[in-house]
Simulated scan of single mutants.
Amino acid sequence: MPRTRVMPVDQQPARRIQPTQSYRQQQPGYPGQPGHPGQPGHSGQHPEPPATPRTPRRRRRGRRAVVIVAAVLVLLLAWPIGLLIWANGKITHIDALSGAPGQAAETYLLAGSDSRADGTLAGDPTEGQRTDTIMLLTKPPSGSASLISIPRDTYVAIPGHGNNKINASYALGGPELLVRTVEDFTGMTVDHYVEIGMGGVSALVDAVGGVELCSDLDVDDEKSGLVWTPGCHEADGTTALAFARMRYSDPKGDIGRTERQQQVIKAITAKVARPGTLVNPGAQVDLLSAGLAALAVDQDTGILDLGRLALAFRAATGPDGVRGTPPIADLNYRPGGVGSAVLIEPDAAARFFASVADGTVTIEEE
C-alpha cells in the first residue's frame, strides 16, 4: 500500500483562493468591469472606498443665518402692525360729521380746546364746551396743501341759532354743530374731525424732548403765564403751551395766536419725523400715548387717517404749502350783542375757500 506523506503544516505550500465569478463581476478593476485598465472610466488609480455622508459646516451656518434673518423680518413687520392695532384701540371717538357729500379734496377740521385742566380728552370730550382754535387742513388732488386758521371770533351764521362768533357753535351744539357751521361758512365738506386738547400739547412737547420756537415779541403775560424775550428759544411743554395760548400781549390778538399755534404743531411734527424717533420703539409708544390722550376724532377716523393727516400737515407747513387766515375785513367788528368780532370779507370768502379746495390758494404776506 502506497504511503501518504504528511508534511508539517508550516511546510505545506500555500493555496491561492480564487474569487468566484459573481464576486468578480461586482468589483471595479477586474477585467471587463468599468475602471479596469483599458476600460472606460479608469483613472489609473485604484478606486477609493465611498465616504460617509456628512452635512457641510457651511450649509449648517447658512441655515442658521436664514433662521436669524427670518426672525428679524418677523419682528420688523410685527412691531409696526402691533403698534398700529394698539394705537387704533386707544383713540377716542365722538359724533361729529354731518354726512354732507364728499369732495375731491381731503379736509380735516382741527378744533383745539384749552379748557381741559389736564389737557386730555378722556371721559366727556365736550366738557368745557369751548373751542379756541379752528383750523382747516386741506390736501387737494393737485396743487398746494393748506392750513387755514379761522379766528375763533369770526362772525358767522350758526345753523338754527342766528349769527354769532364761530366758537359759540361748539358751546351751543358741540362738535356736530361746529362742523355744520364751518361747512356752511366755507362751502367745503369736512371729511375728518380732530379735536385737540391744547393742554395735551404740553405732554407731547415733553415727549419729544422740547421744541424750538421763535417770536419777536417781548412778553410777560400774566394770563397765559408766558415770559418771552425776542428770538428763538428751546421750549418745554409748559412754555410751548403758554406760547400757543397767549394773545392779550400780542398786538395781532387772536390772529397772532393762531400763527403761534401753527408754529408749535409744526415744531412737534418736525421733531417726531426725526429718524432717531422713528426707529426707537420706546419713543414711539410715549409719543402715541401722549398724542392720543390729547385727541378725540369722529367715528370714521382711525389711526391710518391720522397718519395721512400728519403727512398733509407736513405738506401744508412745508415750502410748497400755504398757511394763513381767510381775507379779513375788520378785526374789531361790532354787530351788537356779541362784543368785538372778526369780519371776513364777504365778497372774497367764497372765492378764497374754493381756491383752498382746488389747491390754487395763495396768501399775501403782510
Rank of each mutant, 00 (worst) to 15 (best):
G199I: 05
V219P: 04
C232M: 08
D218Q: 14
V190L: 10
S202W: 06
V179A: 02
M188G: 07
V179E: 06
T189D: 08
L178E: 13
D216K: 15
S202T: 05
A203N: 15
S215K: 13
V227I: 12
D191N: 14
V205H: 02
W228E: 02
T181A: 02
D206I: 01
T186Q: 06
D220Y: 09
K223T: 12
C214N: 10
G225A: 01
S202A: 15
V227C: 01
V182E: 00
E222F: 06
E195D: 11
T189H: 11
V194E: 09
V205M: 00
V219I: 15
Y193E: 07
G197E: 08
C232E: 05
M198R: 00
H233L: 08
G197Y: 08
L213T: 05
L178S: 11
D221A: 13
T181R: 01
G231S: 05
L178I: 04
E222K: 13
I196S: 10
G210L: 01
V182W: 04
V219Y: 09
G225I: 02
C232L: 01
E183R: 04
E183C: 00
M188D: 06
D218M: 11
G197C: 10
T229S: 14
L217H: 14
V227S: 12
I196P: 09
V179Y: 09
H233K: 15
T186V: 03
E183Q: 07
C214A: 14
D216N: 15
S215H: 13
S224C: 00
A235S: 05
Y193A: 07
E195A: 14
G209L: 03
S224I: 00
D218E: 14
T181N: 04
D218I: 00
R180P: 00
P230W: 03
A203Y: 11
G209W: 03
D191V: 10
G209C: 09
S224N: 02
W228T: 06
E195V: 08
A207N: 08
R180E: 07
C232G: 10
D220H: 15
L213H: 03
V227H: 13
A235I: 00
I196L: 13
V179D: 02
W228F: 04
S215V: 14
V182M: 03
D216R: 15
G210R: 01
Y193F: 15
V182C: 03
V190C: 10
E234L: 12
S202H: 04
G225R: 00
V208W: 10
V219C: 11
W228N: 06
V227A: 13
G231C: 07
S215N: 12
E222C: 01
V219T: 12
D184T: 00
T229C: 00
A207Q: 01
T229A: 14
